[in-house]
Amino acid sequence: MLAKRIIPCLDVTGGRVVKGINFVELRDAGDPVEIAARYNEQGADELTFLDITATSDGRDLILPIIESVASQVFIPLTVGGGVRSVDDVRRLLNAGADKVSFNSAAVARPELIREASERYGAQCIVVAIDAKRRTGEDLAAKGPGWDVYTHGGRKNMHLDAVAWARQMAEFGAGEILLTSMDRDGTRSGFDLDLTRAVSDAVPVPVIASGGVGKLDDLADGVTLGRADAVLAASIFHYGDHTVGEAKALMASRGIPVRQ
């Protein structure tokens, strides 16, 4: 039986790993290679590197990081953040990434996902979706649901998140990385309604992200949210819990995990 995956997420800027709350207030969390090696030893199923560097000058700093991690850590590596073109995919794969995650660029030009997927295969194309529950006028106009946001969660693109996920899977995304903007950094658990709505809607795997504060949140993402994988950053970075503890808890709740 396919295991449900636990994916620590490393936010990277200027060659360091950091963690923010609601995409601001960055705190330094350490050296990427050391952290990656530690997570591998703990049994992490994959690692995701999110490049939150604001400038294109700083962007290429992630390539040597991926190169050094990939030469020492033999589990799948995903890189996202500022990926804009099919050529970016090539550069990241050549550096040692296994999957590349698109976000704003896919919203700006959805055909980009088709092109990247046809060139490199769906298995390495992830579409990251930042979704926020509709409120106020949007709720009144469109009814309950979630809208897609870009630019680090600042810009409402007025796309329905479930419909967008479905379209991206049709265009060739091999996986959806779904982040709840409402929950990200709050430690109050995944938005399970959002996770389940998207997971039930698409034929490809869904990674739940945003809001993990305790180990049971990870298990809930799988059992109630029907996520194929769960992603978390701070509970692992600051030593609150190890990946091994997370897997033990999930296994005790009857979830298949690699141990």
């Binding site: 449900k4 995956r5 298995q123 091999g174 034929p203 490809v204 994988a229």
Partner: peptide
């Protein structure tokens, strides 16, 4: 596996992506 459900009621995803025995 297009309409198949896993034991927990969720759908089988294709590609199979992840760790298996």
């Amino acid at each position: 596996l297009d309409d198949a459900l896993q034991p927990d009621g969720s759908r089988y995803k294709v590609p199979q992506m992840g760790w298996n025995r």
